[in-house]
Simulated assay, not measured.
Amino acid sequence: MTDRYTLDRGSLSKEISLLLHLLTADSVDGLMEQRPQLFAEIDWKLFIRLTLHHRVFPFLYPKLSGMSNQLIPAHVRERLQQEYRSNTVRMLQLSGEMARIGAGLNKLGIRSLFLKGPVLAEDLYGDFSLRTSRDLDFMVPIDRLSDTADYLLRLGYEQIEVYESILGDWKWREHHLTFNHPDSKIKLEVHWRLGPGPSAEPDFEALWKHARTSTLLGPDVRYLGREDLFLFLVSHGARHAWSRLRWLLDIKMLLLQQPDSEQLLELLKQYNGEAIAGQTLILAADLLDTKVNPSLSGLMDKPKAQRLAQDAVFYVARMVNLNDPPLEPEVERHFKSYQPAILTARNRLLRAAGFLYPYAADARTLPLPKPLHVLYFPLRPFLWSWRKMTGREEA
């Protein structure tokens, strides 16, 4: 663990503190012998809820299954065993679908890069049953997005949302399409960007250059190189305020593989990720006892990284699903200040400029013929103000 910066953990409950210790302990029995006070007066129902919310139960259960001490009640281990087995079945299902989709896209000449799911579990944990996955995320070149969507529709998937756009802004405002299969209940996210814009990130060709091939699922399943994967996981976790410990656990497991520090630092500098990378390393080191390569530890010295890391503890201390509004008022206020804080000054400027780019709502407010759509640029502030005054929605 680094001694460069120590988080204030005062807001963390006994239950979340115990969970953190269990995740980092080499031996649960050893932890019980050395620090039995950690297990005193625990709300075990809350503890179970925390393991499910943070999605770390598959990693935790194998540790608990071999314990001899009874400080953790049997019903807790039994519940985690049920969840572990259900997750294993789900990951088997997702593995088969990942292989099928990868092979199908390859036959169509569509290159794809899987971002998460079983391939990530296998790579980071060595066993896909040790990590959860709710859906499959993969990336394709944007010029093959329509062909990919057609293929998925032929497989029986249904597209959930269709983005409205008048001047092609969906290409940089959004970053994925979502599909659900009504029978298998598998959810797919088809990316053409790693994350939402406007922001700088590696394009598909740069990512493909460093891609790896899955040893478990075969040559049709390609996924990100280690350094690109770190950049993606850091950006994704920071964007979601590290509100699930599983994302930090992924970082810990990835750092054990010792990605190339020099290449990593170049990537982070090029794509404005140094502050959030420092935030990530502080959280992983402090909360999960992660060893940080000395050549990367300078990222943890940045005051902004330290502020962001402490801000994220707010979410670790709570069971918050930021994708499921409405949020509690306190959480909503905190997140509204957190979101711009993780951006660089350049990206905040880009986001502000993006607000001036016409939205589909502008066309609904004042329909114009397509040749005149360029007029929405000067009209945008007035149309937005009109909707605000009249109480109409902004989309």
Results as ranks from 00 to 15, higher is better:
P141D: 15
V374H: 00
A275P: 12
A361M: 07
T148W: 01
A305D: 11
V331E: 03
E393L: 09
T344I: 00
Y271L: 02
R364D: 15
H334K: 15
H240W: 06
M67R: 14
R173F: 12
S337R: 15
E262Y: 05
K107A: 12
L287P: 00
L356G: 11
H75R: 15
P118A: 00
A40L: 06
S184F: 04
G102C: 02
L248P: 01
H210W: 10
A353L: 15
Q306D: 06
P141R: 15
L80R: 04
F59I: 02
T132F: 01
V320N: 04
D127E: 09
T390F: 05
L288Y: 03
R244S: 01
D289N: 15
L167P: 00
I101Q: 09
L130R: 13
G117F: 07
Y376D: 01
A103L: 07
L38A: 08
D289V: 11
L375I: 00
S146D: 15
P369E: 00
G237Q: 06
T6H: 14
G197N: 02
S68L: 05
Q306V: 13
R134P: 12
R387C: 01
T24Q: 10
L136S: 08
L120D: 04
P141W: 13
H210Y: 11
R364E: 15
L268G: 08
E205Y: 05
L375F: 05
R351K: 14
K291Y: 02
S146L: 13
D183A: 13
A312M: 07
K269G: 06
G96N: 15
E328C: 02
P219R: 07
A121N: 15
I16E: 02
S112Y: 02
R134N: 14
D43M: 01
W172T: 11
E164M: 10
L356T: 13
D183V: 15
P182A: 09
D127G: 00
D286M: 01
F382C: 03
